[in-house]
Simulated assay, not measured.
Amino acid sequence: MFKCTEPLLYIGGNTPSEFATTAEFEKAIQIPQKNISLGQCSAVITNVKEFLQRVKVAAGKQNIALRAQLVSYYDPTTFHGHFAEEDTPFSKQIRFAHQREYRLVANRQNSDASPYTLNVGSLRDIAHMISIEMLNASVKISSPANSPQA
């Protein structure tokens, strides 16, 4: 069963954000410099609904249960509880909050922990590779031509 409970646009953090300027908003949607240690390139999905649909169909064909949601970040100095087993993949210490993750977790219904590839087919029509540096430099927010200026 595919479960997608979160919005398809995600800026980060556990609470809604407000921005005083468009420059502040642009900075918030850029990939944080700390994430560059994870790789120099990014895959930009231009049609998230279609991407999730393809993943859902591919998983269904292989009888794989999927769950998708934002990762929640907790402070280990104040959190002293436990997570339900099904929520564990979606919980990380706050020191990783800059990663701003939305995760897809596949349950293959067995104990095989070996690497696995879910073939969703070509994504060339809805995904593009770009360097993080170029992606961040290209983030620009502008008002629609016919809307009143705030």
Rank of each mutant, 00 (worst) to 15 (best):
M1R: 10
F2S: 08
F2L: 10
K3E: 02
C4V: 03
T5W: 13
E6S: 07
P7H: 15
P7F: 15
L8M: 07
L9W: 05
L9F: 09
L9D: 05
Y10C: 03
I11Q: 06
I11P: 14
G12P: 15
G12D: 11
G12K: 07
G13T: 04
G13K: 04
N14G: 06
N14Q: 01
T15R: 04
T15A: 05
P16A: 07
S17Y: 15
F19Y: 14
A20C: 07
T21Q: 00
A23K: 03
K27T: 12
K27N: 09
K27F: 14
A28G: 11
P32V: 03
P32I: 02
Q33V: 09
N35I: 02
N35W: 10
S37I: 15
L38R: 09
C41W: 14
C41N: 08
S42F: 12
A43I: 15
V44R: 07
V44F: 11
V44G: 05
I45H: 05
T46H: 06
T46Q: 04
E50Q: 05
F51G: 01
L52D: 07
L52E: 08
L52Q: 12
L52F: 14
L52P: 11
R54K: 02
R54H: 02
V55H: 02
A58D: 04
A58I: 08
A58W: 08
A59Q: 08
G60N: 14
I64P: 08
A65V: 06
A68R: 09
A68V: 15
A68T: 14
A68Y: 09
Q69E: 01
L70Y: 05
Y74W: 01
Y74P: 00
D75F: 02
P76E: 02
P76T: 03
T78K: 04
G81Q: 08
G81N: 11
G81T: 10
H82N: 13
F83C: 01
F83H: 00
A84D: 00
E85I: 03
E86G: 01
E86I: 03
T88D: 02
T88W: 02
P89F: 00
P89S: 02
F90N: 00
S91M: 06
Q93S: 14
R95L: 13
F96T: 09
F96D: 10
Q99R: 12
Q99C: 06
R100E: 09
E101H: 11
E101P: 12
E101R: 11
Y102M: 12
R103H: 10
L104N: 14
L104T: 15
L104Q: 15
V105F: 10
N107W: 13
Q109K: 12
N110K: 12
N110F: 14
S111R: 06
S111I: 06
D112C: 11
A113R: 09
A113Y: 08
T117E: 05
L118Y: 04
L118A: 03
L123P: 05
R124Y: 12
R124D: 13
D125I: 14
I126S: 04
I126V: 04
A127G: 07
H128T: 12
I132V: 12
E133H: 04
E133Q: 05
E133R: 03
M134Q: 00
L135A: 05
N136F: 14
A137V: 03
S138R: 13
S138G: 12
V139Y: 07
I141G: 02
I141W: 08
S143K: 07
P144L: 14
N146S: 10
S147L: 07
P148E: 02
P148F: 00
